[in-house]
């Protein structure tokens, strides 16, 4: 599904030049539940951003289902993300003035579909993530775990090909974090959606089907424990 060839990304911070990714080659299959791990500064967030088409590489290519998205213009990339990608962030990033349901509906509103289908999908995903009964609450009245469930629902409601999660459990306690990860794994199994997340949480690393380790911008380990079914 994802083919990365010779990826290079360098940043300028003040007078320093930081080589976040050095010549990464990577291939991820459809339906995989993969984690990119590494200490801070290893480049995992950068890699995720590049796969997520919200950043552009300096060298190399990223192909997602055959499309080299980063070659296009900003609006084309936005369209690609709109139709194909879902994001989950460590700090949830929900819109505080919208209810849980409205937050999830937000990502759906970017796509063209009849209202009935919209409602159906919303109901289904709210059920799947276990938020039935709480969909009318605003984020302020939801716990961290519930908020992340909303975020997951928001990412999945449009049935994307790929979900990218940047340290999804970082702001959750271990129990809640585990629950979220289990949820994402279930959805990965039931929807056949590819999941790629970055983490430095050992619990997460354990649950991943494939563990890619980065250090100083390079892949130092790539451990496929379970194949995607």
């Amino acid at each position: 599904m994802i083919t990365i060839t010779n990826l290079v990304r360098t940043y300028q911070t003040g007078d320093n030049e930081v080589r976040a990714l050095r010549n990464i080659d990577l291939a991820i299959a459809t339906g995989e539940f993969a984690a990119i791990a590494g200490p801070s500064g290893s480049g995992k967030t950068t890699l995720l951003n590049l796969i997520g088409c919200i950043d552009e590489p300096d060298e190399g290519t990223i192909e997602i289902n055959g499309s080299v998205v980063h070659a296009g213009k900003a609006k084309e990339r936005a369209l690609f993300r709109r139709e194909n990608l879902g994001f989950v962030f460590q700090s949830f990033n929900l819109v505080p003035v919208l209810t849980a349901e409205e937050n999830i509906a937000l990502s759906l509103s970017l796509l063209d579909m009849p209202a009935a289908e919209r409602r159906e999908r919303l109901r289904a995903i709210i059920d799947e993530v276990g938020l039935t009964g709480m969909e009318d609450r605003r984020p302020a009245r939801l716990s961290g775990g519930q908020q992340q469930r909303v975020a997951v629902a928001r990412a999945l409601v449009k049935d994307p090909k790929l979900v990218l999660a940047d340290e999804p459990t970082a702001n959750l306690d271990s129990e809640t974090g585990a629950a979220i990860l289990d949820l994402m794994h279930e959805l990965n199994q039931s929807h056949k959606t590819t999941f790629v997340f970055s983490t430095h949480d050992p619990m997460v690393m354990d649950r991943a089907d494939r563990l890619i380790t980065l250090r100083d911008g390079r892949i130092v380990d790539d451990d496929l424990r379970r194949r995607a079914s």
Partner: peptide, 8 residues
Amino acid sequence: MMRAMGLY
């Protein structure tokens, strides 16, 4: 987040 989600 909204831009990442695909808002133009």
